[in-house]
Design a protein around this nucleic acid. Structure first.
Lengths: 215, 215
DNA sequence: TCACGTTTATTCGTACGCGAATATACGCGA
DNA sequence: TCGCGTATATTCGCGTACGAATAAACGTGA
């Protein structure tokens, strides 16, 4: 499914959704998206805005309406969405909702090299993480409670998703921490020994060389 | 906390962890990382390998050991990790484990523009997603069960994390789907009406213009 | 009213990420 | 032993994302 988009940057999706409401010039798009708090939903780099807008126009997903100049200010080009653009917005949204895309959170990368640290240090680090997670969950939860009074749930749904995932991560970290502090994590002894003596256990050495043919 | 890394690409972290075991030349690093299934843990683009290695060397996190040539083959440069490199690996791992980094999964972006689609279509899309999620959870679960027999849990911990998050997402999607199919999702009527008539309800129009001053 | 910070609005330069190309060597079947 | 597919190993060129620079206009407090 997940096809190649003519303009791949997600900021383009946001721009399309903004110009759906009415024609705008780039800075107005930025203001609109900021007003909608779109920065909470995706990684937006405002430096990419004009590039993205130009690319959208190049591929005729939006088109120029007029170009005016006020006083000595730089020229402002107003764009409107095209039929193809409307189609792209809908099609892209469909894809994002229906096709799970394998993501690589940085925490996952960290976990994958966790063995590089002493287990006792890992305990401390995970405790820090957990505290930060709990705090973020609290903050987000309060904000959501505040906003749900004014904004239809349809437009806060991403926050609810976010909260669910954050809670799941906190739960998982808490469980792992439990195993580590209580010493029930299998292989904990060898892991600790490795960091005390600096010696790699035989079974691990074997593993490290797995699948590596002599080059 | 999260400071600027001299080499920011996560592939650099993987390279550092590879050359920790013994000095290697780039292609050997690739083979090692592939043997460790590092591609499951982070987005790895092999086209970036030589750039990353060069940058690591430039910043003296790894250093050249020897440069040999076999027959007419291109020259092979063997690198070893430096003390600074070892430090970077440890420090980076610490950061990844302890500091939660706000991520922007694509699904979140999709949810944030969900209103662009008809609710009845959304139901179908989410059902697709759920099916795919369930299947992936099953596959991952089986693989984990198979591998835990041979590999210490310490090196499968990312998979367990992955499973936990996938399960949480599946649960959340299932719940949302329930509300949509049973019609208990608040504002569902307005959402549907908007897509039938194409008319934006007054309270939404107001919202859409929120925070946008006349430009 | 004038100095100065903020908002409005866009352009520019470049680092670097990465797809694709390149080129040799090796294994193995016919 | 010859041909061909695959593995070995690295270089190159292009696009684009994005930080930083630019600059006018506006608001406001003294």
């Amino acid at each position: 499914m997940a096809k190649r988009r003519k303009v791949a940057n997600l900021l383009a999706l946001a721009v399309l959704s903004a110009v759906t409401t009415r024609p705008m010039h780039p800075y107005e798009m930025a203001a609109t998206l900021r007003g909608w708090n779109k920065e909470r939903d995706m990684e937006i780099k405002w430096g990419s805005l004009y590039t993205v807008v130009r690319n959208l126009a190049k591929h005729e997903l939006i088109e120029e309406v007029e170009s005016t100049r006020h006083g000595r200010r730089p020229e402002r080009t107003v764009y409107r969405i095209t039929e193809a653009g409307r189609q792209e917005l809908v099609d892209w949204t469909r894809e994002l909702l229906s096709v799970p895309h394998t993501e690589f959170p940085r925490f996952r990368a960290g976990l994958s090299v966790m063995a590089a640290l002493d287990p006792d240090e890992v305990i401390g680090l995970l405790e820090n993480r957990l505290a930060a997670l709990d705090e973020e969950i609290a903050t987000l939860g309060e904000r959501h409670a505040r906003e749900i009074a004014e904004i239809p749930r349809l437009f806060l749904i991403e926050t609810e998703y976010d909260l669910a995932i954050l809670r799941a991560e906190a739960t998982w970290v808490r469980a792992l921490l439990g195993e580590l502090t209580e010493g029930t994590f299998p292989g904990l002894r060898e892991w600790r020994a490795f960091h005390e003596t600096g010696e790699i256990p035989d079974n691990l050495r074997e593993l490290a060389e797995k699948d590596i043919t002599d080059v």
